[in-house]
Write a protein that binds this DNA or RNA. Structure first.
Lengths: 214, 214
DNA sequence: GTCTATAGACGGATAGAC
DNA sequence: GTCTATCCGTCTATAGAC
């Protein structure tokens, strides 16, 4: 990460560096999507930019740093998407519709780029784990998602875990068995209804208990 | 796979071969569990048996063949487990209890060996895909599971997909975020109840429609 | 900053002696 | 069947000229 400007670097030079860093990440995303995340190598990234592999070390200190940058990039994109989706919903949209839209957007996000999905949500790169900074980005996203769930009426920690499991399951099955189709994503409404019915019936039970009804 | 006996091989020699093959797979499972599935190498397997790497080629034609054998082995173990669990249930066990037991057994199976979970259920090995034979083993298991679901009353293909998604989600979250705990597996009852409540309410709707009630 | 050259490690797989 | 020796490929990363 830390590519701190040296004393002698002009703003112009810095901007050029940032631009090149951006190009490197762009190429990396494209190559990962084309040839698979596991096949991503520094040589390949460099070649796609008509560079030699060692030159990348002027911009990132290691391959792990590039993966971290991609990881953070991916989570930022997801965060942006979920924020956009959320902002586009009318204020009094039902909880049901909110959940459906969030889930639909999330699955769409995963299907849009299999390599990105594998980088962000599965441990697909042997020998690499997100750095603490990168992990923080994923945590921030999780917490953002929790506030959106809270708006939709889901606040019980157990319900949140339930909800993440339902979402993860839909996404995982979709990506593993029908990456370009909708065999599982078209079950989104079912899942949301099922989930809300469940939490509602539990709430009713709790209400009965408070009232002392057997 | 095909290690067909040659004309001159005695039964004794064949038994010895089978035994060694078995030892190779055993060591591979142990090493995968210890050092991670991705780190599994022929050199390492051979060393753990005090052999040299090339000697493995007398027993398996390639590393992919070893992975295939492990894959089939793993699915056979799962099949055995689910059969055992199923047989242990009294004949008139409720659908709810049946689903709970199957799901509990499955998650336990995954938690018992993270490497095996990754081999069977995620695409964790770069450049390897199960051979058609190996894939057939996983399909057989899926169909076995479907018949068990049918016994528990789940026959609608959409419900089966829903059910696999729920299961996959619980397992994935459990393995990724709490591999040795029960943060998600203790939601099994919730998930099963939720699922049954959902299918039941849909059945009620269908009944009303058949009766012509609005 | 970018290059060439290369270190140094790992991997799967093969040839051929014994 | 098992070995030694080796081929050939992959990769990240570094040294040092320019």
């Amino acid at each position: 990460m830390s590519t701190a400007p040296t004393r002698s670097s002009s703003a112009r030079v810095e901007a050029r560096r940032a631009q090149t860093r951006h190009e490197i990440l762009d190429s990396a995303w494209r190559l990962a999507a084309d040839s698979g995340l596991e096949a991503l190598s520094l040589r390949e990234i460099a070649a796609s930019l008509s560079m030699q592999a060692p030159s990348l070390y002027s911009y990132f200190p290691s391959k792990a740093a590039i993966l971290d940058a991609l990881f953070i990039d991916g989570y930022r994109a997801l965060d942006d998407l979920l924020t956009t989706v959320d902002d586009a919903l009318p204020a009094r949209t039902s909880a049901r519709q909110r959940l459906i839209e969030i889930l639909r957007a999330w699955i769409g996000f995963c299907q849009a780029d299999q390599a990105r999905y594998r980088l962000l949500f599965t441990n697909a790169v042997p020998g690499w784990q997100p750095s603490p900074d990168a992990y923080a980005a994923s945590l921030a996203n999780y917490q953002h998602l929790c506030t959106q769930l809270a708006i939709a009426g889901v606040t019980d920690p157990d319900d949140i875990d339930l909800c993440t499991a339902l979402s993860a399951g839909l996404v995982a099955q979709q990506m593993a068995n029908d990456p370009d189709g909708d065999r599982w994503s078209r079950r989104i409404e079912d899942v949301v209804d099922m989930f809300l019915q469940h939490t509602a019936s539990r709430a009713r039970r709790a209400t009965r208990l408070r009232k002392g009804t057997p």
